[in-house]
Design a protein around this nucleic acid. Structure first.
Lengths: 204, 204
DNA sequence: GTCTATATTCCGATAGAC
DNA sequence: GTCTATCGGAATATAGAC
């Protein structure tokens, strides 16, 4: 099962190549020729398997969303205690995203650029039910486990602290003068730093 | 001085139109024809004022960076006390960005997509000296004003909490089910919520 | 299924009249 | 400075041989 080997089906090679190119350059910046080169085939074959660039993009984008969203919601929707949940989420999220660090910006960017009807077609059923998490936060406030805070605000805090450093990587480089190795250590440190930062703030 | 009126010079009309189109669609998604339409002129005139799409983009991107970066650094580089600084920063940043909320994603996205030499040409001198802020955080730790935290981590926390909700607006809509008005109120509430969240976490 | 060759559309850029 | 018309190349997509 060598992901880059020649035992992949042509369709798989196309999908992997398309993912790499679309994620790196975005829908409008990607070229069918780039994808064909990356897959080691020619342009015509792309259109044989997927009718158009738009159809191919739709498949890739949907797959990216389908992998990113559950990654965020699964732990938050579990029945763990609130603080444990926050700790697990940060560790787990940063670990997985470090392996494909450009996916978040890809999804965020296309969510902002693609027409709304396209986005609706993708998310349609995906709309995550985070009500369990919101309820849990409200209860934690009611029982004085944490200080008063709106669940939407807390969720946004958590997600912002985890995702933003990935999308802003070039800015962090410029501002701090880190090199690649230091950036990696910085992100690993955040797996502990973020939950500590959050829990320190909300616990009573 | 009507910004949308016809008393603008042609160059100003082009610059404003180009900003709107580039920010909305990105470098690769923008079309010279779109910019010409938005400016109420024709394509040829774009090339008369700015030699190429790339040159025009460079002007727009540089302007965006030059307006965004000082906005972040000015307050952080001031000589205010640490907590006051954090409060002012959040209020000020969210206020100004709410007036052109797509600039941060534009800058972040192009920083990731444009070749490094292009970015270097833009930032060149801009490299902000946040050493004052970093020193201040270290001193605050040393004097037990705040708990131990690496200055880079704290800065990243602050910036993440402020910027991310703008770039992730469509995701917030889907996840929380907010409408436009609720989103606006949500962002206004963050002007107080974020500094409270941060200071609560780091103060001893 | 896979390729080469070609059609077709689009887009950045220029020529040249006014 | 501003316009219309057009060039030339690039990109998506299709035709047709194998």
């Amino acid at each position: 099962m060598d992901k880059t080997g020649s035992d992949q089906t042509t369709e798989d090679k196309i999908l992997e190549a398309a993912k790499n190119v679309f994620v790196a350059k975005g829908m409008s910046g990607a070229r069918m020729q780039d994808i064909a080169n990356e897959a080691g085939i020619n342009k015509a074959l792309l259109h044989y398997y997927f009718r158009s660039k738009e159809k191919l993009f739709e498949v890739i984008f949907k797959a990216a969303v389908s992998r990113l969203v559950p990654r965020i919601t699964a732990i938050l929707e579990s029945d763990l205690p609130l603080f444990t949940k926050i700790e697990r989420f940060c560790e787990n999220y940063i670990d997985t995203v470090m392996q494909s660090p450009f996916i978040p910006l890809f999804v965020i960017n296309e969510m902002n650029k693609q027409p709304e009807e396209f986005i609706l077609k993708i998310w349609g059923d995906q709309k995550p039910g985070l009500q369990i998490f919101f309820k849990q936060v409200e209860e934690a406030v009611a029982t004085r486990l944490i200080r008063p805070i709106h669940p939407h605000q807390l969720l946004t805090h958590i997600v912002s602290l985890n995702i933003f450093p990935f999308v802003a990587k070039p800015i962090i480089f410029f501002v701090t003068g880190m090199n690649t190795q230091e950036y990696k250590e910085f992100m690993i440190a955040r797996k502990k730093e973020i939950p500590e930062f959050i829990i320190n703030s909300i616990k009573i």
